[in-house]
Structure formats: structure tokens, C-alpha cells
Design a protein around this nucleic acid. Structure first.
Lengths: 128, 128
DNA sequence: CATAAATTTGCCTATTTGGCCAAATTTGCA
DNA sequence: TGCAAATTTGGCCAAATAGGCAAATTTATG
């Protein structure tokens, strides 16, 4: 029972970093080699490699070596659905001009379109 | 665009701790006051309070003060579905006796029942 | 008003995490 | 064989996180 929560939190922890989310996001489109991913993330390649190892250790991604390259693929497909949920969740916050840090006053929750420009969580929280 | 991934990872990071997963799990059943949750987690009440603040800061839970108690509720309902996915994901690993750390050899993936006793991720990983 | 209960906040310490650099490893190819 | 490219690993340091204790805050009640 304790293990259950530890395993769950391990998955979440693995996804709890902007670069690793970016990596997973890229892998949603298909396999990528480390060099492509390095370019995407823009950090030192050793850093990217460690992020990938961590994701792999959690079982979220897998990899295959072909020639001198290593290609990573997403294994946990259901991440995609949850990401959509998370995006919608944030978009709703922004649309309603509701700050989650304030109490009450959350009535209806209309479905909203998700746009990248709506991701302004930091601005919302900066008020506090 | 960068904000998008930061917001996403914030949600994951907030859920990336066994105690916080436990808290969210309890809140799936309905609202709970801090004292109930403290008992559940079994840590110092200030520690539990901080975990709850963190979840609240991410927007995952909300709270309401009634009398001298504070009642927390789950706001991000879609967490439930993802937890189910995560559980199934781990159960599958255990059922197939497949270690995600090893390459290849992942053929079919039958649907499996989820039992708490099947959460033995640590044992799997201890082999390495 | 004074006290008690519930909760949060501040402070301190130990541990973990993130990131870079350099070194090691693996593989392809001349 | 020996070099070059891709990737991982180890070491190091700075920053963030977790957890407990004590103090502060809020609210109910005698």
C-alpha cells in the first residue's frame, strides 16, 4: 500500500521538471535521438541525458541504440491525456481570471480552447 | 510556450511526493480536515500543512475554513483518471515481470486487474 | 477576557536535485 | 588499429525540498 503511493509519486516526480515535460512532449510525436532532444531543450547534453535516464528509470520512456545514436520513445501513452487535462485546467484559470490561491467564488467552468498564449500562471501568482 | 511547460511541470512536481499523493487519494473520497489528514499521513501536522499548501498553490486542491477547522477538497478532478492509468501501468510491469530498465522484449500488453499487493516497483528495481 | 484547539508560519538542518565540465564508453569508419 | 561522433557517468557546487520544533494566528467557548 505504501509502495503504491511511492510508485505513483515517482511517476509524477519524474514529470515534475520543465525540461522533462518538454522531452515527453516531443516524444509524443514519435521517437527522437538524444542529439535532437538536446537541441530542443538547449541544455548541456549531459544534462539532457540525465533527464532522459530519469524518465527511463520511471518507465515513462524507453530507448534503443542504433548505430552511435540512442533513440528514445514514449512508453506511457496515457500521459498525453493528462497533459491535455492539465492544459485545460490552466486555461480555465486564466480565462476566468480566477486565482487558485484565493478562496471560494468558483462557479461554472465552461469548456475553453487552449492556447499557448494563455499560459500565464506566473503572472497570476505574482500578485501574491 | 515556455510557461506552458512550467505550469505543467508545476502540477507534476506538486504530486511528486508520496505524502501528497496520499493526501490527494484521500480527497478523492471527499473533503477532509487537516486533522484527519494529519492522522492519515502520520507526520507532524506542520509538515502536512505544508504539503497541503503546496497542493493548493498548484491549484490541485482548495480549502475552506469552518470554525476552527480547515477543510480541503480536490479541485483537479482529472487526477483520478491519471492515477488509474499509473496504477495500471505499474501493475502491468509487475504482471509481465518486465523491468523497464531493461531494453526490448515488450510484446503484448494485456489488461490487468490492479491490486495493492502488486505494487512492488522497488523490488523490481532493486535488482539493478 | 482568558484559555484551548486547529492550523499556519518561521527557522534550522539534512537530503535531494539540477546543471556544467571533464572523463569514460560505445560504435562506425578510414 | 585508431580516430571521431554520440552518449553516459562521475565529480562538484549551488539551489531547492522535506521535516521537525517552536512561535504565531485564528476561532470557539467558558
Amino acid at each position: 500500500m505504501r509502495n503504491k503511493h511511492e510508485f505513483r509519486s515517482k511517476i509524477f516526480k519524474a514529470l515534475g521538471h520543465p525540461s522533462r515535460i518538454l522531452l515527453v512532449d516531443a516524444l509524443l510525436e514519435g521517437e527522437r535521438c538524444v542529439c535532437e532532444l538536446r537541441e530542443l531543450v538547449g541544455a548541456d547534453i549531459s544534462t539532457v541525458s540525465k533527464h532522459l535516464s530519469l524518465l527511463k528509470e520511471a518507465g515513462i520512456v524507453g530507448c534503443e541504440k542504433r548505430g552511435t545514436n540512442v533513440y528514445y520513445t514514449l512508453r506511457m501513452e496515457c500521459v498525453k491525456g493528462f497533459l491535455t487535462c492539465v492544459d485545460r485546467f490552466n486555461a480555465r484559470r486564466v480565462e476566468e481570471h480566477v486565482c487558485v490561491l484565493c478562496e471560494g467564488a468558483r462557479s461554472q467552468r465552461p469548456e475553453v480552447r487552449i492556447q499557448d498564449s494563455e499560459f500565464r500562471s506566473q503572472e497570476l501568482e505574482a500578485r501574491h
